[in-house]
Design a protein around this nucleic acid. Structure first.
Lengths: 157, 157
DNA sequence: CTATAGTAGTTGCATTTGCAACTACTATAG
DNA sequence: CTATAGTAGTTGCAAATGCAACTACTATAG
């Protein structure tokens, strides 16, 4: 009557679901990156930050909050925002209420770039992912995915 | 009667499915990496290569084939295998039939490490992903994922 | 056989990331 | 107010990755 951690045995379905998930997502992301580069645009991570800024009130966020939204360590946020600033895509400013805080604010140039990158991004995702499912299926798919998220959110709570 | 690329508008479900997929997978991978590190083991990419070797005939593969299996550019394969060799986890040898080819062959030490890493890896995936679904759901999930893969395979054909 | 194109793998250089230590500020305890 | 702990952001150094140029070999064309 043993039952130690021979949990090590996975069924075919389990393996395929996990490996499939990893490989499929990697492939999709690689494809997006590839197309962005081909079009002469910067990395997806730049897009992510620009997008978060654009969807925020005032087009600005504190570096710390950017880090949470795009899941990036703080030192990487510092540097990414630095690069964005060098390209004139965002501007930085001190937080008036918290002396430690730094705001990044998207510029017009940043907004324009994001919009152009979106053309490429959205096309890849539509043609390689969204188009594979009809409305009902996509809904189910989203529900499946949400279950993983659920545990993530409660983790950080 | 216009209909240019204002494909740019996504439904809520589309957005959530895509963003959810990306974030969920990123979270899962981060979690695996975190636990591996916490346990004092190397990166997931090391595991991937060791696993591919171990599941191959003779425990060996050509660098080129490793690259295809784990989706890594050739220069990264060279270096990753170099690191694995430095740690005594694989050994390298010339391919007898193709003078350009190099084989990497997993060592006993490599097999042992992979097995130990698997303990950690499998636990994270089970507790954060697999456990969210029953048999039937997992099956459906896999089928959803496979559709993305389908296009990937035909790409490289 | 010779020339030419293609493939496998490596390497130098620049960029990006991870880690740990650091500064500067805020929050809490006394 | 002072001390102490915690948070936001930065930076130096090491490791990893991307890119392009390179070597060495194989495959094809003539």
């Amino acid at each position: 009557m043993k039952k130690k951690s021979d949990s090590a045995k996975w069924s075919e379905t389990e393996t395929q679901a996990w490996i499939g998930l990893v490989k499929a997502q990697q492939h999709l992301i690689d494809k997006v990156e590839e197309e962005l580069k081909k079009a002469g645009y910067p990395q997806l991570s730049w897009y992510d930050v620009l997008w978060e800024l654009e969807s925020s009130k005032d087009g600005s966020l504190r570096l710390n909050d950017i880090g949470k939204k795009v899941i990036l360590d703080k030192y990487n946020v510092t540097r990414l925002v630095q690069r964005l600033e060098n390209e004139g895509l965002v501007s930085r400013s001190q937080c008036p209420v918290d002396g430690r805080g730094i705001f990044a604010c998207i510029t017009d140039k940043g907004r324009k770039l994001r919009r152009r990158m979106w053309q490429v991004y959205e096309k890849v995702v539509r043609e390689n992912f969204l188009c594979k499912y009809n409305k009902k299926e996509l809904h189910e798919f989203r529900n499946f995915i949400e279950r993983i998220q659920a545990s993530r959110l409660s983790d950080s709570a």
